[in-house]
Design a protein around this nucleic acid. Sequence first.
DNA 1: ACGGATGTGACA
DNA 2: TTGTCACAT
Length: 673
Amino acid sequence: MPIARPETSDSRIIAHVDIDCFYVQVEQRKQPHLRGKPAAVVQYNSWKGGGLIAVGYEARKDGVKRSMRGDEAKKVCPQIHLVQVPVARGKADLTIYRNAGSEVVSILARKGRCERASIDEVYLDLTDAAELMLKETPPESLESIDEEVLKSHVLGLNSNGKDEKETVREWLQQGDADHRDKLLACGALIVAELRLQVLKETEFTCSAGIAHNKMLAKLASGMNKPAQQTIVTSSSVKGLLETLPIKKMKQLGGKLGSSLQTDHGVNTVGDLLQFSEGKLQDFYGVNTGTWLWNIARGISGEEVEGRLLPKSHGSGKTFPGPSALKTLTAVEKWLKELCEELSERLQSDLEKNKRIAHTLTLHANAYKSTDADSHKKFPSKSCPLRYGAVKIQEDALNLFQGGLREYLGSYMGNECGGWGITNLSVSASKIIAIPSGTSSITKYFHCRDQLQSSSEPQNENLPVEDDLSSPIIGAESRHSPLHQTEQKDECGGEGVPTVNDTSGFDQYEPESKEEARGDFAGEAFRLSTGAESCPTSKHNEMKTSLPAKEMKMKCPNDVIRSNDRKRKITTKEKGTSSILKFLQSNSCSSSKQDTKCSSLGGQDQLDMVTTTQTSNRTDIWSYKVDEIDQSVVNELPPEIQEELRSLLRPKKRANMSKDSSSIANYFSPAKNK
DNA sequence: ACGGATGTGACA
DNA sequence: TTGTCACAT
């Protein structure tokens, strides 16, 4: 359950919007002849007709249910059109649905804070918009009200025999209504408008709930479907919840809900009212107890998070029963497929949203036939994420092997090898936006500091999913930083050492595919202000948990590097360093800069010191170049990447495997065979 | 062990 | 922090 938060206000206007039988609508838009016909979307057609993942309303009338098999659906509804989910790399590929969801999100985000709750649902906080409307153009001032709004369902409003719409109109426009009801009315107008907008621009219908908090809005959005909206007035809440089966509440559809029923005889939300907060806390803990006590009263303080993009990407597949994977080779093969998909999506996220994922996690389910010690779970494992399909594959495989060893126990009776993998998945998380606009490098550094802080997401202007076919937007139009000798001086000469602008991040294109490049896999990145001190120390330590032990074996470079870590290198002054030029030309300082690049002996570490003389101040940036996040390096203009690498690693070349050209991998998701 | 693929959030 | 669990669609 969510944390039991107090309500910040009881007059928020929250909407939950849910696209009706989403996958089906996507397919109907693609194949218009399916419109109005009974249809369902199915995946894996082979076994019993595949499993339904979405059912259109025409088919629902015939009793077709989600999670029926295709065959059963045909039985119940012989005319049904079963559309298959696209398959790529041997697995279901939901890309088209994600993209369609993004279309909707970008429309819904226009009127207020918007949270993408799932592929087909969003929450909106329309409080400001509703208040504004109430002030400027309150409903009662309108002479006509849109048809769509009049079709709203207003809970607790009984049109005793009278015309429904007329009753709704009266409710919407009554000048002496409760202030909170007026706000709801405004919310309803706004939501209806948004829904029409969605329909016009995407051809999708959706349903919505409008209420004072997320919980009630979510509840309401499901009450009248499809293509309708429902308003929860505060006066209707008690009656609504009183008889509502406990399992209908979000978060109570599982074990907790069952426990409530069987252990305490709570069948409806209303039944909860008999328990004191303390009692509920005794049963389920302080947080959950309070949360339960609150929701029984229609209280829910959860905020609508402003987030248009997903926080993680995953690619997975199940291998049920007989199809379980029993050899490392099979696992490797599927891992490759999964990692390639994941890599593409990460790539797309990077290009379109300027975001970088930092953690790779492998999940698996396994069974062990031989051992009595069965039932152990296959452990999930994670490691720092390196971009490039091949690297992700390698890392994922290592994670898997680490997990397998743990799973099988130290001895691993490998003879029978009685194990099987029934589910495999890889996912990428800790996705951080690369700030765009000015000072991107600096901001990025700071951003790493705030990895978990409250800071709002930064590149969420356009919710763009991995659309693997469309061109990169917003990239072409920018200038190359290298030709940009001067930038607007936006940060004056004070304080923070700032690298100005960042076009480099945005515009770099994958032109140099073949250039062979080594790879250095540092994780931590440090920026320090002031000579030796490192005020922003926190993230210095960024422990990059090495994944499995095997991994070390496979990555001798890592080991070597970390052994060398202490060596200080000082390069003699090299005015020609394009890195420095890059930093200079992008520096916020309008005055001259005296830059030095010092290095000593080693190739692993290079401490670059830039002295910026600006109004008597000296700011020194100390980049531990070998610790720069690979992803960041990959973002830099190619010349600079090249230079960084040559400075860093003249000798290590020998060691690199053929596919280690990080740039190449990075931009052309390894189609290695 | 055919409710699949995917995502979020809390807790230890 | 990582890994596990619960929950959801």
